[in-house]
Design a binder for these strands. Structure first.
Lengths: 209, 209
DNA sequence: AACTTAATGTTGCAATTGCAACATTAACGA
DNA sequence: TCGTTAATGTTGCAATTGCAACATTAAGTT
């Protein structure tokens, strides 16, 4: 895991947040961030709780763009939020920090050695975000629901190092993530169970191959 | 466009490249970078020419991960290349610079003020890469070939600011990009032409809606 | 120009999928 | 605990798509 403040002590952390005029916010459960603030040019950091970035497009489709937990970074540096199509929803009470995105670039803080560390961390986080996107693209690129599921399961299993994995979200959300019809996915999972490929009990899935 | 050396003069550019022990390479047409070098932990910069990062997965599918021209940045900071599945192919003779990825993080160059600028540029480039990925995900998320095509055309048209757009790659490559069967895509394009949605002459496409 | 190779176009057909409509179960709030 | 809402499961059916096989055209090479 990469944290924005990795290798930066609490004191310097505070200095950075002050330099950048960071803003502290608490989002109640099920509240959309954009009902509280209007700007979309920020770098956000989840302190505690859980956030989802959700896109509702004109044809009524709903997609989870990101599912964010403690220490996760979000904002227009990562997702173009400048559209009414996006919602940033707290799935539970969530504490966040917002940093004006422009301040990151405007000033030259290179004289503060810890700021350089901060930038390095940010770089690493962005690299990870790209990797996340690449993985999703990898999955979406598969031509059948079964192959999308298998690719996804394979990745999760690899991350966890076992053949048993826990879905980080619900089946409804999984269907969104894979960009397939939930019912069709449910049917495919049934077939895969029947053929002995996988075992499912609630969100625990075991690969049998 | 964002360049790695934006706002850095030639002299300091040279210093940075020296600090980072950058390596200069020329790739002949149709040559895979990995037939020349073995390391995959680098940050690459295209000086002139054209590169494609292509993935061949185990089931024989071929996908263009990236299509890179002058000033484009590539490497494991953006795409996990640590797999024999990837090829970095020069579509024409291409000059590149390679920087050992680890050197970016290992040392503390914050004393060089231009290095901070360099990091900022890199940050901006990564942000753009994420945006690229998000756009592709947006497209791949559409459920029909027609909607994928329309979403893609819409984005290109928006970029160009007109209803007429030029495909940056061939139809075969477009099918890869959209992750659909080329023949099925060709059929769909025919229908769209017949219905008067679009006009096509070679790679120039005009939106009629 | 002749030849080779790559790209594009076309179509029938079977497989996969989305959609709709509904049943069942789980989760949640009063 | 009851009632409500959200999540999950199920299935028929029509639409979409991938696949295969082949024709045509364009591009590249000698």
């Amino acid at each position: 895991m990469n944290y924005l403040f990795e290798n930066i002590n609490a004191r310097n952390q505070g200095k950075i947040l002050k330099l950048l005029e960071a803003e502290y916010l608490t989002l109640p459960k099920n509240v959309n961030l954009f009902t509280i603030i209007s700007s979309d040019s920020f770098l956000g950091l989840v302190r505690t709780g859980n956030l989802q970035i959700v896109k509702n497009d004109y044809s009524g489709n709903r997609t989870i763009v990101e599912d964010l937990n403690e220490n996760a970074v979000f904002g227009s540096i990562i997702t173009n939020l400048n559209s009414t199509e996006y919602e940033v929803i707290a799935k539970e009470e969530t504490k966040i920090i917002l940093i004006d995105y422009n301040r990151l670039y405007q000033n030259d803080y290179s004289k503060y050695e810890y700021y350089n560390e901060f930038m390095k961390n940010l770089l690493k986080i962005l690299t990870d975000k790209i990797e996340e996107r690449n993985q999703r693209i990898e999955i979406l690129t598969k031509k059948t629901i079964r192959n999308k599921l298998l690719e996804y399961f394979r990745m999760l299993a690899k991350k966890m190092g076992t053949r048993t994995l826990y879905l980080p979200f619900s089946f409804t959300e999984l269907a969104d993530y894979l960009a397939v019809d939930r019912c069709a996915m449910s049917r495919e999972l049934k077939y895969m169970k029947e053929e002995g490929f996988i075992k499912i009990s609630s969100r625990r899935i075991t690969l049998m191959y």
